[in-house]
């Protein structure tokens, strides 16, 4: 007889707490990746910052992402209190805001190709950093979409919402990463 994963729940930590710990460890690991990116920026470019950055767009997409964190928080809070409708609406809003952020990054890239293409020092950093972050946003959107589909089919409830919690935590982490990336690319001098 094989040991099935859920059979492990009888240990002192609940499956939920174990999942949480696993996710936090993964996020800790990811932090080191972003730390490598950010330190590379300072190693190669010091505090130099091109004047051709589109500051309005940078501030705009930052606000969009912060707002999406709020709606993600609301979605998680709603399902934890049994409010399915609020959960679905807020999750949809989060996905929409995430897509808006991706569109913003795409607009940013169009301009960046002209002002500091990838084969320049700042361009290398800029495209890699925003690209890797956008990859995280896209994977987060994928997970949120799966959660949304499952939610529509009646999955998740007040007592059983790890899928929502995990997806939302990851989404917040992507936001935290941007909170550091944004000034590193746009503001620091």
């Amino acid at each position: 007889m094989a040991v099935q994963p859920e059979a492990l729940a009888r240990h002192r930590l609940s499956r939920m707490a174990l999942n949480r710990m696993g996710l936090w460890l993964f996020l800790l690991s990811e932090t080191f990746f972003f730390a490598a990116l950010i330190s590379s920026r300072y190693y190669l470019q010091g505090l130099a910052r091109p004047e051709t950055l589109n500051q309005a767009l940078g501030l705009g997409i930052t606000m969009v992402l912060l707002l999406s964190s709020l709606s993600a928080y609301r979605a998680e809070t709603c399902i934890a209190h049994g409010d399915r409708k609020g959960f679905q609406q807020n999750l949809l809003a989060t996905i929409a805001l995430g897509l808006l952020f991706v569109v913003g990054v795409a607009m940013e890239w169009r301009e960046a190709f002209v002002h500091f293409p990838p084969n320049t020092g700042f361009g290398s950093i800029f495209f890699t950093m925003t690209g890797i972050h956008a990859f995280h946003v896209l994977s987060g959107l994928l997970v949120l979409t799966l959660v949304y589909m499952l939610g529509r089919r009646g999955h998740f409830s007040a007592g059983s919402s790890w899928g929502v919690e995990g997806a939302v935590k990851y989404w917040h982490f992507v936001d935290v990463a941007w909170v550091f990336i944004y000034p590193t690319l746009y503001l620091v001098t």
């Binding site: 690991s29 080191f32 990746f33 490598a36 084969n119 361009g123 290398s124 495209f127 890699t128």
Partner: peptide, 24 residues
């Protein structure tokens, strides 16, 4: 868990220099 991310980025940056035209 932690340090491996640094080599992941180091190798990725070489890969980008090779195929994506960056100049790290």
């Amino acid at each position: 868990l932690t340090a491996t991310q640094f080599v992941a980025f180091a190798l990725l940056s070489v890969l980008l220099d090779r195929v994506a035209g960056t100049s790290f």
